[in-house]
Nucleic acid binder design. Structure first.
Length: 228
DNA sequence: GCGACAG
DNA sequence: ATCTTGTCGC
């Protein structure tokens, strides 16, 4: 399908690909009634942007799948997808190959449409895998919060960029900074906010993202321990 | 032109 | 992204 987009040689090329992704995002709901939700995140060594990246796809109700690869790029703001999506796709394939059921909805640690070219890592992964995704980021890459987010869990305010609402600033927990929830692929903004809130568990980050974060970290520590 | 900049 | 210890509050 569209996994050719996983590897590009230059940032100029990547920019072209991102414009294609941005135009291909589906912003309406297209997912099963009771989706199996999983989180997606990566882990890497501190300040080692050329070292290996460890990725995890972590279902809420089952074992996580992980994969490791060396990304072709250092970290460049706006091009995160080209570092993370290839190795996340490897973890996804490993999960599919393990025989069990595959997730119907991924909550990705990073932005979706809230991106200069509407192609954040969540959208990138969703289009590449052809699966519904939600972006859930801890800080903004672009755009501004319109108004203010209320103090209580569930309170929200739109994030506007280029004249359109690209995400929702969402208070998950009192006295904790909001998270930025956005459309990745095949999920409406309202549905995205609903799922993140429902899986919040009284914490700032939704459960699937925490599980993926932990699984990716565990994979990295394991790899670092048994090498040498 | 200058500054800002997910993970 | 990640490192590290203690400290504060419910």
């Amino acid at each position: 399908m569209s996994r050719d987009w996983l590897s590009v040689a230059t940032l100029k090329e990547a920019t072209i690909v991102q414009r294609m992704i941005g135009e291909r995002i589906e912003t309406a709901d297209r997912l099963p009634p009771a989706p199996r939700v999983a989180g997606a995140d990566v882990s890497m060594k501190w300040r080692d942007s050329m070292g290996p990246v460890h990725a995890a796809i972590a279902p809420v109700d089952g074992p996580a799948a992980t994969a490791t690869a060396i990304p072709p790029f250092p970290y460049v703001p706006g091009y995160l997808g080209f570092r993370e999506v290839p190795v996340l796709a490897m973890a996804w394939d490993r999960m599919a190959a393990s025989g069990g059921p595959v997730p119907d909805l991924l909550i990705v640690d990073g932005h979706g449409r809230a991106h200069p070219r509407r192609a954040g890592v969540a959208s990138h992964l969703g289009v590449a895998l052809d699966v519904p995704t939600i972006g859930c980021a801890k800080t903004l890459l672009c755009g501004m919060v319109e108004g203010e987010v209320g103090p209580d869990p569930g309170d929200r305010a739109p994030v506007v960029h280029g004249g359109e609402v690209v995400a929702m600033a969402l208070r998950m927990r009192a006295r904790a900074a909001p998270v930025y929830v956005g459309i990745g692929h095949r999920v409406s903004l309202e549905t995205a906010v609903d799922w993140v809130l429902r899986l919040g568990g009284g914490r700032r980050l939704p459960l699937p993202v925490r599980l993926a974060h932990d699984a990716a970290n565990a994979a990295r520590r394991l790899a670092e321990a048994e090498r040498s």
